[in-house]
């Protein structure tokens, strides 16, 4: 083995260790009996129990899930339409502005997106009285806006990689355009839509900064709650919560991977 590949392999090992060791330690310390989070005091599951008794966490988690499901669904709907328009409608007036608006929310720093949306809601309220209270609806709108960009890009690139003559063939055989969308296009981009939905769901669950801007008093999402706790330092019940999330996500991703691998093989 050459010195170069040894270098590559050790960098890979270091890189993966860097990515995963901190997570492993969080999992480990979630079973720590001591209430001083960094000192090992023996094995215990008591933090998990406390987690389930904590109404604040449960409320925040519920709000986050509601926002994530709603915004992911709306984002998939709008994003799919936008991806279709970009990949299949040819040239239309305002296309440059449209594709610019699609790709910008992804690269915009969160503080700017959050601030700008809050200012919009405040202005809207001044003139129309809506939204009277910021919370579920405003967070959902904010999350939909940046998630739909991801969905649109995923759907668009799936469509660009797809043979356009499939849709033409359906039209040639008598399918009217709207019919063809349902017969051919949607079934074929369904995997992209599912991927887009899952990504939107995760992004929404993950967001702290934008939600902090656009939520009002009384509506706290899970990341907002966690942030308010960890600001003060390491805390054992957050370790337990993190472990639950890590386990859930890893299982989900591993399952998805296995299913995809199986279906890829004929």
């Amino acid at each position: 083995m050459s010195s170069k590949s040894r270098f590559i392999i050790s960098t890979l090992a270091f890189g993966y260790a860097f990515l995963y060791l901190p997570l492993l330690l969080v999992v480990l310390y979630s079973f720590n009996d001591s209430s001083i989070a960094t000192i090992w005091g023996g094995f215990s599951t008591r933090w998990y129990g406390e987690l389930l008794q904590n109404d604040l966490i449960l409320d925040a988690a519920l709000l986050s899930l509601k926002v994530a499901v709603t915004s992911a669904t709306a984002a998939t709907l709008f994003g799919t339409m936008a991806g279709l328009a970009l990949a299949r409608f040819g040239r239309f007036k305002g296309r440059t502005l449209f594709s610019g608006m699609i790709s910008s929310p992804m690269v915009m720093p969160e503080v700017i997106t959050g601030l700008s949306l809050l200012l919009l809601f405040v202005t809207l309220q001044q003139f129309t009285g809506w939204p009277g209270q910021r919370g579920f609806s405003t967070i959902t709108i904010a999350h939909t806006t940046f998630s739909m960009a991801y969905v649109a890009i995923i759907v668009q690139s799936r469509l660009l990689g797809m043979d356009e003559s499939l849709e033409e063939a359906a039209m040639d055989l008598g399918g009217k355009p709207l019919r063809v969308v349902f017969d051919i296009t949607l079934p074929l981009i369904a995997p992209a839509m599912v991927a887009g939905w899952l990504l939107s769901f995760t992004l929404s669950l993950d967001d702290l900064v934008i939600a902090s801007f656009v939520s009002g008093p009384g509506s706290t999402t899970l990341p907002m709650y966690i942030f308010s706790k960890v600001k003060l330092g390491v805390s054992p019940d957050i370790n337990a919560l993190a472990t639950l999330i890590i386990v859930a996500v890893s299982t989900g991703v591993a399952l998805a991977w296995l299913i995809m691998r199986r279906s890829a093989r004929p």
Partner: peptide
């Protein structure tokens, strides 16, 4: 290997940053 690169994406960003707090504390790991 790629999946392992992407996986952390799906785990809460906030919690991943938090994980380092426990590591780098003066009395951390």
């Amino acid at each position: 290997l790629l999946l392992l690169i992407v996986l952390p994406f799906w785990i809460s960003f906030l919690l991943r940053v938090y994980a380092w707090m426990g590591l780098m504390n003066n009395y951390g790991v």
